[in-house]
Amino acid sequence: MGARLEITDLTAAYGEFRALSGLSLTIAAGETLALVGANGAGKSTLMKVLTGLMGGWQGRVTLGDAPLRPGDPRAASARGIALVPEGRLLFDSLTVEENLLIGASGRRGPWDIPAILSLFPVLTEKRRARPSTLSGGQQQMVAIGRALASNPDVLLCDEISLGLSPRVVDEVYAALARVRAAGVTMVIVDQDIGRVAGRADRVACLFKGHITHLGPAAGTTPASLHDAYFGAAA
């Protein structure tokens, strides 16, 4: 089941460069948040902070009712945060099935291997294949399946449609809709504002490390986000 994610006054930097500055955001349990913003706005940094891939940040991130430990990806995984990383980043020394199995680390829940394969039936016959032999869309399905296998409370999807054909993107979003219906909290990053807004409850726009727009997804269009996206509002 989904969990509430509360981010308060989050600041994260790479050396001199501040990727996130004083960001605050609360995502309700079971909510789907579309996260948009230009390159370098801080979307991927936020993903890294939430998954523990990046430590050394200031502020407070609370999952459910307990704070998250900075820079500890194992703890984040155990607490129920899973990531579909930008560029998929599958394990190519493992078969498709092994990629799914490796995601299933301890947390029990509805997303076992048969459930994931029924979400992505095309993967059933590719179970013994190496991920590198799959199409981009199939690889993205493996990445989502690998993340789901840990039965997460919060599913983070970074650049979910990058490099995929529109038809495949529709398939991916159809699957994500079923995940959403199961009550998992989701954060989806997508360059295509119109597309992701139509599949989310709210839209948040990042610009230079802080939030320039946060509102209901209904009615959000690229044009209505123009100022927030390019920083004119700030």
Partner: peptide
């Protein structure tokens, strides 16, 4: 084996492996 799977995953992508809960 499961250990072998984890070994190969760590060899491929240590940071993502950590994200999967692997020590």
């Amino acid at each position: 084996t499961r250990l072998g799977r984890e070994i190969r995953a760590v060899s491929d992508r240590p940071d993502i492996a950590a994200l999967m809960g692997i020590r």
